[in-house]
Amino acid sequence: MNIAIVIILGVLMLAAAVTALYLKSLSAAVIAAGAVSLLASVIYLLLAAPDVAMTEAAIGSALTTVVFLYALSRMRGTKKEDPRD
């Protein structure tokens, strides 16, 4: 098991997480949050937990993103933009 790979994946995850919180576009933020989950599933695979990796890849990064995007598409027409987010 390569420590360097885990560190790279972890740094990418943290960067994606911060990006998800500070991106202006909500749909881009949702995709960034999905990337956090996808990278987490790779880490689970490296941690010898293939069951968890499968679940995280299928649920965390696929279905959660879809549910978020469906919710976003139903929340169109916000009166004012968020000035800070």
Partner: peptide
């Protein structure tokens, strides 16, 4: 093998 009801159910939903 790795997988099971939860993962299979999610794949079907996909």
């Amino acid at each position: 093998t790795p997988g099971g009801g939860f993962q299979g159910g999610v794949v079907i939903a996909t």
